[in-house]
């Protein structure tokens, strides 16, 4: 992919990601998040990770966001009223974020392999989905099974904490 497209999608993600936080209206935030996810999907595609890119669109931008919008509408959330901004706390947050950013740039700047170019990846004999399935059910079977238990506990917890008792 040309670097112009990379910068375009990366900037798209960042701008809309920031808009998610800045917007006070929950629906606007949710829609901004969709665009941010689409940018991420495009970046995955550009790295030849087509399966992850498509899943990103289907699951995150599709299913999860529809769920978000449903919840926002069902709960009838209004735009949050703008609270007085605590400048000291905000400045502290920005300073910490900047420190992390500087650190990341420093580390990347001192990498030797970030300056060299690599040959393109070899084409795989089998397709993405097949590859991921082999890894998940082969080598990474144990963590995959534990995720099953994790989802069970999360489901029980979600039901338990959102259940309204009849009085």
């Amino acid at each position: 992919m040309s670097p112009i497209l990379f910068w375009f999608f990366a900037l798209l993600m960042l701008v809309f990601g920031a808009a998610v936080v800045v917007n006070r209206n929950p629906i606007a935030s949710a829609l901004n998040l969709v665009v941010s996810f689409l940018g991420l999907a495009a970046l995955f595609m550009s790295l030849d990770a087509f399966f992850i890119g498509i899943i990103q669109v289907l699951v995150y931008a599709g299913a999860v966001m529809v769920l978000f919008l449903f919840i926002i509408m069902l709960l009838d959330l209004r735009a949050e009223r703008l609270r007085k901004i605590n400048w000291v706390a905000s400045a502290g947050g920005v300073a910490v974020a900047l420190a992390l950013l500087v650190q990341i740039f420093y580390v990347i700047g001192h990498l030797t392999f970030s300056k060299q170019t690599f040959p393109p990846l070899a084409r795989s004999e089998i397709d993405d989905v097949h590859n991921i399935g082999l890894l998940l059910f082969g080598n990474y079977n144990l963590p995959f099974q534990i995720i099953g238990v994790l989802v069970l506990v999360a489901t029980i917890g979600a039901v338990l904490l959102s259940k309204r008792e009849r009085r």
Partner: peptide, 17 residues
Amino acid sequence: FIFIFVSLELVTISFYV
């Protein structure tokens, strides 16, 4: 690391509840 992450999440999610 992958297994550490998954089992840590199992512990943490049950603690959320």
